[in-house]
Write a protein that binds this DNA or RNA. Structure first.
Lengths: 163, 163
DNA sequence: GAATAGGTACTCGGATAATGCCTGTCCGAGTCTAGTGGG
DNA sequence: CCCACTAGACTCGGACAGGCATTATCCGAGTACCTATTC
């Protein structure tokens, strides 16, 4: 059980995009250089964010990525769903129905839900709900509170790095 | 992000062990046959449960596994921790501190916690808490409520399968 | 001098390898049982 | 008849391969910009 590290990258990229001018585009290369990340792989993650409608991309010179919505409208759950895909972490393989034990279930036509699966899904649901309640704007505000100079610094770095 | 399917197997095995006589041992082969699972691999998961103190194992003829504590004392979190290991699902790789961006953090001696990591950990914590509040006994009760004949049937099957 | 056409450089986008973890399997160590021989 | 010993079989336990998802990389499609040429 491990969350793709692309999720961490994606959230940080959303933050950085929220600090540069809203209409400015930032290339994947710049975003990667900021954290010493592999450019092409980060680009892949940004593509996923694009497909999810979190960022919009522009090709060609002066192209790059920018947030497609306001940070208040981007939840951590959105980002995770974009990177990780729609699958649940816990996948019920219905082992109840395999082997001799299955007869009991078969008699019921598999109507009864699996209590194990239910409990796991409930737990996963509270996790998702918590993540859905946190927006990029919340994280942004938290960072600005603990490190007030961060936004200006990030903005300056991305401005200066433009040759 | 995917939970090892051994977790599902382990919980079902704990349930079955809770239904046979408390002092009876059940071999990994029997538990595997009940769901048509690969015996050796299930054995591996049961070993993990053993190391975590959830089941106890006895070698040799008439050996096998049995619950090491009462079902009320075994939470789903215990089982998951036993199978998945102690690692968190979200692992902060501290990308903040890598590359040019790191200078800002370095100036602070990395004192400020990463807001992204904090949010992810909070979400994971509610997940863990939910799982820690569900015991095997709870699942057991839920199954017995929806399928009252299950316990007797399981018990009978494991008794009969003893040649 | 202005406009246009062509070339060039730059960026995203998806297709293509390499790596690591999860899944699956195997054989050895230990232990209980049962049978056998002796007292 | 009872006991001790030995051989056997059975089970867990950890060490050893295979498959798939994640990680990483590369090259092509498309676009904007710049330049040179022409009116």
């Amino acid at each position: 059980m491990k969350i793709n590290e692309g999720v961490e990258w994606a959230v940080h990229c959303c933050l950085n995009l929220s600090w540069v001018a809203p209409d400015r585009t930032v290339t994947a290369a710049k975003l990667a250089a900021f954290y010493n990340l592999p450019t092409a792989y980060l680009n892949k993650q940004l593509q996923a964010l694009g497909r999810a409608g979190i960022v919009s991309s522009i090709s060609g010179p002066r192209g790059g990525f920018q947030l497609a919505r306001r940070p208040e409208k981007i939840t951590l759950m959105d980002v995770i769903a974009a990177i990780e895909g729609p699958e649940q972490a816990f996948r019920c393989t219905a082992i109840r129905q395999r082997g001799p034990a299955g007869d009991l279930d078969a008699a019921d036509g598999y109507r009864k839900p699996c209590a194990v699966s239910q409990a796991m899904r409930t737990a996963e649901f509270v996790w998702r709900k918590e993540l859905a309640s946190r927006t990029v704007a919340d994280i942004k505000a938290a960072v600005e509170r603990s490190t007030p100079q961060a936004p200006a610094r990030v903005r300056r770095w991305f401005d200066n790095s433009r040759t």
